[in-house]
Write a protein that binds this DNA or RNA. Sequence first.
DNA 1: CAAGTGTACTATAACAGATAGTACACTATG
DNA 2: CATAGTGTACTATCTGTTATAGTACACTTG
Lengths: 125, 125
Amino acid sequence: MFQIDRFGRTPIYEQIIDQTERLILTGVLKAGDQLPSVRTLSQELSINPNTLQKAYGELERRGVCVSAPGNGRFVTGDALRIVGEGMEEQLEEIKRIGRELCAAGIPFERALEAVKAAYEKEAKV
Amino acid sequence: MFQIDRFGRTPIYEQIIDQTERLILTGVLKAGDQLPSVRTLSQELSINPNTLQKAYGELERRGVCVSAPGNGRFVTGDALRIVGEGMEEQLEEIKRIGRELCAAGIPFERALEAVKAAYEKEAKV
DNA sequence: CAAGTGTACTATAACAGATAGTACACTATG
DNA sequence: CATAGTGTACTATCTGTTATAGTACACTTG
């Protein structure tokens, strides 16, 4: 369910956050679903419980999940909307890269193809 | 000529690298041009000479510039080509984000508009 | 009560980024 | 030659982030 890359630059706790949000976006995790517990997932991924706690804490701060102490941690009803809103920033990132590509003389068609390919590939999956 | 953001996540030396390459892409810095010296630029930006040395060292490793000890540091003839080739990675980044946008339910048109807007904005400048 | 949950806390290690300071070698210029 | 300005090398230190280890406590369900 989760895949950790220990050698990349992105910290583990960020990978957890990203992948959890991704699971919500793709509908694998729905409102009310229980997230894997800190202990079990930390064992499964061979990471420290504190690292996981940090990731879950951030997701909670964003309103993506809530904790029920003694019970578990669950996806909120707003999770999908909240995660979706974060995509506006991604659009800004695309614009930033787009300007660089233009400055580099990369034709608009190539940038367009990249986005198109991404949508076609994602749609298949 | 250079703008440093001390509060963002991107390290200073990476900002120097990015901005130098950007200046080459936009034609502000051409083959044979001298780069600002380690001492003067470090004073101007209020950063440590070592930090600048690190940035310049990486640019040199990439073949973007060469150092002439006792004389200065200059943009190479291959600089524009080398920097341009790095743009392939940016296209991959766009694909990655594109897939996320698709998963988030952002319509293809919106992603397309973002790229289009970037190219139009850059072309004006 | 027992097991499983979240939470809090301290301590430690490792690493990256940045700074400070010093010293040396080279080149162009006056 | 002397000087100023250039690149280079090196050590040491500081800071913040990331990750780990270990312990302890509180809560809920069965």
